[in-house]
Each structure stands twice: as structure tokens, then as C-alpha cells.
Design a binder for these strands. Structure first.
Length: 886
RNA sequence: GGGAACUUAGCUCAGGGGUUUAGAGCGCCUGCCUUACAAGCAGGAGGUCGGUGGUUCAAAUCCACCAGUUCCCA
């Protein structure tokens, strides 16, 4: 074995072996299923740090439950990502001097498929590099034929059930992608803007002042509204004012929707360009004037401003208003403005004909599921956010003015009659039956929102819509857990829950684990434009996949955002190397024990101790993973392997454990590999094969695991060794502080009869100085007395209150100039102990405390007091022996 | 405007009414190339747990208010 772990070769080899033997293939069988569907990444995307975190977490669960006898099925796949992919294809065409509409739908789709084929597979390879133990034979794509059919079928079904309708509504319009967006695809950002106070002059020359941030829409004004009860403007209601820069007069109307506290309390009503104004317009039967084109330029209704962009028009109109003396004042104003999630363009409210899903009935299903505890959100606090959203849900705009996606299965007759059907022939048949000529039918040009296919994902990957009674669906559905980021709780998670209940009557998954967003050290979101997102493949190349996995998990507290720092990968790499070298030591021992059997009196004792410790850690890891506490678990394993296994146990077994013991130690080492495997699959697989010489088709990920019975844990031994460890550290500290290079012997003063033999073994081994019985008096002048205390084993699942302290004499010559140093140390310790004693005394002298606090708490305080008294007296005695004045 | 959180060591975070005087990792300092590992070993310094009140025998921990920060939604 090399002294440095080289992950690249090892990882490549096991990746190939797992592929060759289809190690992670899952088929229905007699075992209980454990199913995860992978949140499908964008088919043409590349792996980023968010994917690394998301898939590592899923892989930990998959491998953990696989090792516990579940039939784990992790279904991978990719998403066609309608807007994102179409935008990239459009850009490529443009670079070739081609326009989407010039080449037409069919040619465009051929281009899009070409693009998809060129880029798909990249991310799949990258996921495999990370060590993802998905069943790759079950790979699905949201736009493949059977999933396409599923989308069309659900559309038709929801339409027939009255849950899908077509309507003219105010929607969010992306003027760059030229498509409608759902509410969820709009992100709000703070903008520094200007609030213009504009005069609307009436025929008598008096005027109203209106505050607006969008003067470019003035030309679309059809009314001015005030609050009915607003005393300032009562007399104005019913009068006419002139729209600035035009000759048009519009009425002053009264409407409750006006906010009297905003600006001057007067509102310009622009039904074509503001959702609230649209509603006011509807109520008052106002006309609608649209002054924008689809790409957010001004149109012919804007007269001289035609052709200008929104921004240019705003500047020109403000300028012209100034010229006309119609600007009262301009104030700086901060407000949030909607941006397209995909193109980052400022979205425009736009009135248009779109398809919608009626959400209220579906939302109720989704809400009940979480309320009743059928579906658990982890961390729990996301439930509140989830409910809040569902309560205020609006209908879902699902049509997109794009070509890349599932084409809406609706056909229109020339008079506007709509026929919705799963196929063209069915639509024709419907039309014919209704007395229309099928040849005049025209299919809707639009496609469906990407999420309209994603929300079916847990159903469609098991071909529910092809055949609800198929064995895969029956066996694997409902799935166990969904692992995703909270940003798509509404986009995706809530809608999958709706689809699950609506179409199958069953939940799609039992638990949703929501992890944080990966940010950089400055808390900025990782993004391509900032260039702050490291390429995970480079990291894997440099540190190894196991290291990257461990690094990212160790920095990802549940539900909190994760501040990624490359140093974490380095830590992961160092950890791999540490583990590697600990197995290298086992390997060396095995070679050595054959020719020179040696014995260490401590070795067997240490073995018994580590056995107890290991079984505690096993139980803890079991609990932590089942509770989705990955971060804590990674830290626990890290310190367990590094501190307890390497620093204490292996050191205790040195120089060479006897052969029969080594075999037992190797069994323990395998148990450690099992614990680590979900986090670091490659190195553990490698070390397992090296140690056990198992044939390559066997995988550690299938080796079963049975937790040890906790009732057999030797708590006394754990306490004793803990005391020994604390004592060793303390004595090392004193040795270093006082440069006691000539330490000759140690004596125990207190002498716990039962613990003494254990202490003797450990202390003598680690400090290489004899530990003498208290009766073996030496030259007391040269003895240091060290009050040493140690606590019991710390553990999450059992509070240990047994505490021990021990006092040691160190037999060493102290040079005169070090005497003062020692005296000062002891004095400092004395002061601390005294103040501690006082704090306990204050409690115990308080009658209220004695009367009201539980008996055991009082007793504990009394125990503390007597312990500290003993320690104080030892310190004083020592100081006196050194001739110090107190 | 509505909602969810956060504020503990230089940095990132655990903990969560009474646990022998608040923990980890990283960083920093000191001494070591000790036969598994310098990607390492041994040790150290550093915090009145955001502020102010309250509840309690007991508050970093519970409550209220204040200040600051972040995220989500409109």
C-alpha cells in the first residue's frame, strides 16, 4: 500500500466495476422497497455544486438503507427544461444567422433534439463520477415518448375534470423569451427607481397630482381613481381630466382598491399594464389600451413614442412632461421589481389568452397531506411556509409561447371552438361530431410549462399512466423520500403532492428533506456570471469524489445554506488519507504478526474498550441518518475515526497486536467501513476489498449490518478509559508546560480500586513512565501533585452522570526557576476552583433552591461541592509543599 | 405589506432551563520528520452565548421588546 491515498485510480476502477455488475440495479422482490426519485437536472446542464450536495445526500440515504436490507431503487433522469433549452437553441441558431420563426417549428425541434443529444449524457457521466448509486437502467427523460404521453393524458383528464381552462388573464410576460411565465418563475429584486408626481389637468385648469413609477404607461391610462371616502378628492369624482401629453380626457372614478396613503392618494388606471388596474378596469367597464409590443417596446398606440424601448420611453416622457410643466416633483423610490427567473428580464404584466390549472381543489389535497402528517417536511419549519403558500395559491399559468416541450393538445375551430384530445385524430373526430370540418382545425402552438411534466415525475418514472397496475408502480410507489432545495418547494414539491393524490389517491413520498443552497464564502449564491462556482469535476479531479462528498456534507447543517470553501475538500482529502493509512497500519501488522508475535498488556483491554465505543457510535449513526442529521453524522464519524480509532485505539495496540487479536480488530475496522460507506463509497469499497479479499462482484454496499445490543455496553470501562485519556492529556500538558523531560514516575493518590488497573495500563503505555501504587512513597519533595478530573462518556442517547476525578503525583525533579512557573499555574487553578466553589455554595445556601429544586439536582450540587473541596485541598497542600504563600 | 429564521471563539457553525465552570472544524501560536499518516503527532491561546427587561430556586437555553442580518412570498 502506498503511504498516500490516490483517489483517481481507485474511484475509476470501482465505478467501472459497479457498472459492470450493475451493483445498484433494482427489481421488485420480497424485500421492502426504499425508493427515491432523483430531482431531474436539466438535460443539457452541467454538474454544479448544488447537484453535488443534492445527490450526495440522496446517495447517503440510498447506500445506508441498501446496507440495511432494503431494496433501494434510486431513479435517475433529466428534465427538458423548456425555457432554458429553447433559449440556448435560439442563441445557437442566431449565431448561424437563423431565426426560429424563419426555419419553422419542425426544423427548430430537430435542432433542439440535436442540441439535447449533444449535451445529454454529460451530466449523467458527471453524476456517476460523484459515485451516485442510482439504477441507471431506469434513466428517464421528461420528453421521451411515454412521459410525453403521460403529460398529454393528464392535460386532457384535468381539462375534462374542469381543472384546466383557457382564459384571458393578466399574466407575467417575459419580453426577452417572449413567453408567459407562472407566478413562481418571477423573482423580485429591489430597484432604485423614481417616483414622478405628474399633473392631470382638468378643463377648468385645476389639476390632480398622481405619483407613478411608470410614466411610460401614461399613454395607456383610461381613468384616474381615488378612494371613495377620501375627503380630499370627493368633489373630483365624476369629473374628467386630460391624460398628459395627449388630448384624451378620462374620468375620475372611485374605487376601494386605491391606497390613499401611497403618493397623493390618486391612482392612474392602466388596465393593460397592471394587475390591480386591470381589476379596477373590469369593475368599471373601462376600455383597455395596450401601448407595448411583445418585446416591450412602445406600439402604435403610443404615437410619437412608437418603437422606443420601455426605458427610452420613460426618459423621453419624463423629459416631455418637464417641458410641458406637468411634473410636480420627482422623488427617489425603492421598490421590488419582478424579473424572469430564466432570462432575468424585467417582466411585464400582460393581458393575454393562456391556459391555467385551477389550483384551489388541488391545493386542499396537498395541504391536508402535510397537516395530517402523511408527508413530513424536514426541517419542520418549512411546513409553515408551505401552508402559507397553499392558502394564498393562485391559478397556475401553464402555457408557454415556446416550441421545445409538450405541445398543448388543444385544437381550435375557426370560430374559436376548442377541442381537447390526446391525439389529432381524436380531436378531428370530436370536431366532426360537433359539425365542424376537421381540415379547418388548428392546433395550439404553445407548449406546457416544464413543471407540468415534472409534477408527474414520481408517477411517470414508474409508468403509472401507461398502466397503473404495472408491477414497478405497485412495488415502488409511494416513494420514501424526496431530497431537494427549498427554492423549488412550490414549483415542484407541492405540485407533485397534488398530482400524486389527484391521480393515484396516494402520496408521492413520505418525507421531503430540504437542504440549503450552496453559496460562496461571502454568502453569494453560486452563479456562472459571478464566476464563483467551482467546477465540481475539477474538485473531484483534485481531491477525489469521496473528499468532495465528505467536504460538502461536513459543511451543510440541515436546512441552512452552506458556505462552500475549497478548504473543506482538502479536509475531506486529508480524512481519506488518514483512513487509508490506518488500514495501511493494519496491513503492516498482519505481515508482522506472522513472524514475530508480540503482546501488549494493554491491547486486549483496549480492544474491549473500543468494542463498547464502536457499538455506541453505530447506534448513534443509525439514529442520526434516520433523522436526516447528515451534517452531525459526518462530524461524528470524522472525530470518531480520527480521534478515537486512530489516535487512541491504534496507538494503544502498538507496537503490534497478537494475531488472534488482530483478526478481531480487523472485524471492527470493517464495521467502521460500513459506517463510512454511505459518505465515502469509493475508499471504503477499496479498503474493504483489500482487507477481506472479497471478489470484485461483491460490494460493501450490499454487506448487511446488525446493530449491537446496547444493554451489553460496558459503561464502566468507557468511563475508566475516558478518565485515563483525560489524565494522559493533562499530564502531557504539564510535562510540556514545565519542560519535565525527566519525569521518572507517577503515583495515583485517590486510587479507585476498580479503575486503577485500567489507568495503569493506559498511562504507562502512552506516557512511558511507571505508575506506582500510593503506598510506594518516594521523595515527596520532588513530587508534583496534579488534581485531574475526567467526565464520563458523552453520548447523545444516554445522559451519563457518573463522573470521576483522580489525583496524580508526578515524580520529577523540578529546577528552581521552574518552581515559580508551577506555583503560578497552581495559583491560577486555585483561584478558578475557589470561584467555582463559591458559585456552588451560593446555590446551596439558597433556601429556595434547597426547597424547590428537584432532589437529584441538589444532590448533584452537593457532590460537586465535595469534589471541589477535595481538589482545593490538594492544590493547597501542593502549594504549601512548594513553600508558596497562599 | 405578509411569512420563516438567524445573532455563541478571528471565520463557519453545534448545543438548547440545572451535565464539575460553554463545544467542534478551520485559522492562529508552541514543540516535534516519534517506523501508518508532515495530507501527520503532541500541546496552547481565544467567548460575561446581540441589547434591555421579564418568568424561574435556576436562563446561553423560555417569554416580551429593541437593534442588526438573511431567506421566502406579494
Amino acid at each position: 500500500m502506498e503511504s498516500r491515498y490516490a483517489p483517481q485510480a481507485v474511484e475509476a476502477r470501482w465505478r467501472a466495476v459497479w457498472e459492470k455488475y450493475q451493483t445498484y440495479r433494482s427489481q421488485p422482490d420480497a424485500r421492502p422497497p426504499y425508493t427515491i426519485v432523483m430531482p431531474p437536472p436539466n438535460v443539457t446542464g452541467v454538474l454544479h455544486m448544488g447537484h453535488v450536495l443534492n445527490n450526495t445526500l440522496q446517495d447517503i440515504l440510498a447506500r445506508f438503507y441498501r446496507m440495511r436490507g432494503y431494496n433501494v431503487c434510486w431513479v435517475p433522469g433529466t428534465d427538458h427544461a423548456s425555457i432554458a433549452t429553447e433559449a440556448k437553441v435560439v442563441a445557437r441558431l442566431r449565431s448561424q444567422g437563423l431565426q426560429k420563426h424563419e426555419i419553422g417549428r419542425e426544423a427548430f425541434l430537430r435542432e433542439a433534439w440535436k442540441w439535447t443529444e449533444e449535451h445529454s449524457g454529460i451530466i449523467v457521466q458527471q453524476l456517476k463520477t460523484l459515485g451516485v448509486s442510482a439504477d441507471w437502467q431506469r434513466y428517464r427523460f421528461t420528453l421521451e415518448p411515454s412521459l410525453y404521453r403521460a403529460v398529454i393524458e393528464t392535460f386532457v383528464r384535468l381539462y375534462r375534470d374542469g381543472l384546466i381552462y383557457r382564459g384571458k388573464r393578466m399574466i407575467h410576460w417575459d419580453p426577452v423569451a417572449l413567453t408567459a411565465l407562472s407566478d413562481e418563475e418571477v423573482l423580485y429584486k429591489e430597484h432604485e427607481s423614481e417616483l414622478c408626481y405628474v399633473r392631470y389637468v382638468a378643463d377648468k385648469g385645476d389639476y390632480l397630482v398622481i405619483a407613478t413609477v411608470r410614466p411610460e404607461t401614461i399613454l395607456a391610462d383610461v381613468a384616474v381613481a381615488v378612494r371613495p371616502a377620501d375627503e380630499r378628492y370627493k368633489s373630483w369624482i365624476g369629473r374628467q381630466v386630460r391624460v398628459p401629453l395627449t388630448d384624451r380626457y378620462v374620468p375620475v372614478i372611485a374605487d376601494e382598491a386605491v391606497d390613499a396613503d401611497f403618493g397623493t392618494g390618486c391612482l392612474k388606471v392602466t388596465p393593460a399594464h397592471d394587475p390591480k388596474d386591470y381589476e379596477i378596469g373590469q369593475r368599471h367597464k373601462l376600455p383597455i389600451i395596450d401601448v407595448f409590443t411583445a418585446d416591450a417596446r412602445l406600439n402604435e398606440n403610443a404615437g410619437p413614442y412608437k418603437g422606443l424601448s420601455r426605458e427610452e420611453a420613460r426618459r423621453r416622457i419624463i423629459h416631455d412632461l418637464h417641458e410641458a410643466g406637468l411634473i410636480e416633483k420627482i422623488e427617489p423610490y425603492k421598490h421590488s421589481v419582478g424579473h424572469s427567473e430564466r432570462t432575468d428580464a424585467v417582466v411585464e404584466p400582460r393581458l393575454s389568452e393562456q391556459w391555467f390549472v385551477r389550483m384551489k381543489p388541488l391545493a386542499e389535497l396537498a395541504q391536508q397531506a402535510v397537516e395530517a402528517g402523511d408527508i413530513l417536511l424536514v426541517p419542520e419549519r418549512f411546513s409553515a411556509i408551505y401552508h402559507h403558500w397553499l392558502e394564498n395559491i393562485k391559478d397556475w399559468c401553464i402555457s408557454r409561447q415556446l416550441w421545445w416541450g409538450h405541445r398543448i393538445p388543444a385544437w381550435y375551430a375557426p370560430d374559436g371552438q376548442i377541442f381537447v384530445a390526446v391525439s389529432e385524430s381524436e380531436a378531428y373526430a370530436q370536431a366532426q361530431a360537433a359539425g365542424y370540418d376537421p381540415r379547418t382545425l388548428r392546433q395550439d402552438d404553445d407548449v406546457l410549462d416544464t413543471w407540468f411534466s415534472s409534477w408527474l415525475w414520481p408517477l411517470s418514472v414508474f409508468d403509472f399512466f401507461e398502466d397503473p397496475r404495472n408491477p414497478d408502480f405497485q412495488y415502488y410507489y409511494p416513494t420514501q423520500v424526496l431530497v431537494t432545495a427549498p427554492e423549488i418547494l412550490f414549483f415542484w414539491v407541492a405540485r407533485m403532492i397534488m398530482a400524486g393524490y389527484y391521480f393515484t389517491g396516494k402520496k408521492p413520498f413520505s418525507t421531503v428533506y430540504l437542504h440549503g443552497i450552496v453559496r460562496d464564502k461571502q454568502r453569494r449564491k453560486m452563479s456562472k456570471s459571478l464566476g464563483n462556482s467551482p467546477d465540481p469535476l475539477n474538485l473531484i479531479q483534485a481531491y477525489g469524489a469521496d473528499a468532495v462528498r465528505m467536504g460538502i456534507i461536513m459543511s451543510a447543517p440541515a436546512g441552512n445554506d452552506l458556505l462552500f470553501d475549497e478548504a473543506l475538500c482538502e479536509q475531506g482529502k486529508n480524512f481519506c488519507n488518514k483512513l487509508w493509512n490506518s488500514f495501511r497500519l493494519l496491513h503492516l501488522w498482519r505481515q508482522r504478526t506472522q513472524d514475530q508475535p508480540s503482546d501488549s498488556p494493554l491491547a486486549w483491554e483496549a480492544y474491549r474498550w473500543f468494542e463498547a465505543y464502536l457499538s455506541l457510535v453505530e447506534a448513534e449513526v443509525e439514529k442520526m441518518i434516520r433523522e436526516y442529521r447528515f451534517y452531525e453524522c459526518s462530524h461524528k464519524l470524522y472525530s470518531f475515526v480520527w480521534d478515537q480509532f486512530c489516535s487512541w485505539y491504534l496507538e494503544a495496540l502498538k507496537p503490534t497486536p497478537p494475531a488472534p487479536l488482530l483478526e478481531k480488530v480487523e472485524d471492527q475496522a470493517v464495521r467502521i467501513l460500513r459506517l463510512l460507506h454511505p459518505f465515502m463509497p469509493y475508499i471504503t469499497e477499496e479498503l474493504w476489498h483489500q482487507l477481506t479479499e472479497a471478489p470484485e462482484e461483491l460490494s460493501l454496499s450490499h454487506s448487511s449490518y446488525s446493530p449491537v445490543d446496547q444493554s451489553e455496553v460496558d459503561w464502566f470501562l468507557l468511563d475508566a478509559v475516558r478518565l485515563a485519556q483525560t489524565s494522559i492529556s493533562k499530564i502531557r500538558q504539564i510535562k510540556q508546560a514545565l519542560h519535565l523531560s525527566d519525569l521518572k514516575a507517577m503515583r495515583i493518590a485517590g486510587y479507585q480500586a476498580k479503575m486503577a488497573p485500567i489507568l495503569k495500563l493506559w498511562l504507562e503505555h502512552f506516557l512511558e513512565v511507571p505508575l506506582l501504587h500510593p503506598s510506594d512513597r518516594g521523595e515527596t519533595d520532588h513530587l508534583l501533585r496534579l488534581p485531574i478530573r475526567a467526565t464520563g462518556v458523552e453520548s447523545d442517547f444516554r445522559t451519563r452522570s457518573t463522573l470521576y476525578q483522580e489525583i496524580f503525583y508526578l515524580d520529577a525533579g523540578i529546577e528552581e526557576h521552574k518552581r515559580m512557573e508551577m506555583v503560578n499555574m497552581l495559583k491560577k487553578e486555585l483561584r478558578e476552583a475557589e470561584s467555582f466553589r463559591e458559585s456552588i455554595l451560593r446555590k446551596l445556601e439558597n433556601q429556595q433552591f434547597i426547597q424547590k429544586a428537584p432532589q437529584e439536582i441538589v444532590e448533584k450540587e452537593q457532590k460537586k461541592l465535595s469534589d471541589i473541596e477535595v481538589r482545593l485541598s490538594w492544590i493547597r497542600e501542593q502549594l504549601e509543599a512548594m513553600g508558596a504563600t497562599l
